[in-house]
Design a protein around this nucleic acid. Structure first.
Lengths: 135, 135
DNA sequence: AGAAATGATACCATATTAGTATCATTTGTC
DNA sequence: GACAAATGATACTAATATGGTATCATTTCT
């Protein structure tokens, strides 16, 4: 089971790189070189990040991407939700079969608890916290 | 992101049903009727559970399945591992790019923490605990 | 005007998930 | 022993998700 898929990962790397580049516009070309991510795939990812207001894009010669908001306001869980959909761990297949007679399904409760924990932890990770240690 | 896939779910339902049938042998036919699971698919799943020593099978007329060990010694995480492979959440794609210079990647640490929690919680769920409330 | 960038979008390849079908083997019953 | 009733093994198919590519349109700097 993967918590983070490839596109989320690439997005994360790209956003971290852009964050470290402060104010300067970063082109896809530079990201491809520095991060070794397939060009077309990265372009698609950056376009999504632009649409979702994580990045702001500039077209034309000298164009590229910058952060659309402060790095400490971009959370890992935002990226996960954008590329992997809502984080729903506790969807209970069992509803029909195991839970018909009882109010509180013990499995459901556990899954809810796990989900809450995962979301809490992922919500505490910002781009800033991931870039902090790097030079 | 799904924590529990369809086959794990079906396996869980079947094992719970068999657990509740104490000692009596349960046939695929009965499970199909009671649980509305596609016959062929369920058969494949039960065969795996037999191979993995969760269930014990009896061939021939009057045959079927029983639990191979006490219900309180069968854990949800066992089923997840059988049908979905090892639970590894913390695989760190970022190793190369973000972590080259530092000893402890903050993301990695978080993911490890999440993984440990999930495993701990899932390890506390037994077939007994899921069947307990049902009539 | 033209080059350099992103935007939109359609497409392709592969892997995973979900499900089906069939023949072989074992075993209880007559 | 024949036969039906069950599971064992296994190969196949369908649908969906993931990972990646390609192309044309649009904007913008010079």
């Amino acid at each position: 089971m993967k918590l983070i898929t490839r596109d989320t990962d690439y997005a994360l790397r790209a956003v971290c790189f852009i964050a470290k580049s402060e104010k300067t516009i970063v082109s896809v070309e530079e990201l491809v070189e520095k991060l070794s991510i397939p060009r077309s795939f990265l372009r698609k990812i950056l376009q999504v990040l632009n649409r979702k207001r994580i990045l702001r894009s500039y077209k034309g010669s000298g164009g590229g991407f910058v952060l659309a908001k402060p790095a400490n306001r971009v959370f890992l869980i935002d990226l996960i939700r954008i590329f992997q959909g809502p984080l729903v761990l506790s969807e209970c297949f069992l509803k029909k079969m195991l839970c018909p007679n009882i109010k509180i399904c013990p499995l459901r409760k556990k899954l809810d608890k796990i989900e809450k924990f995962v979301i809490k932890e992922l919500s505490s990770i910002t781009i800033t916290s991931l870039s902090a240690h790097k030079t």
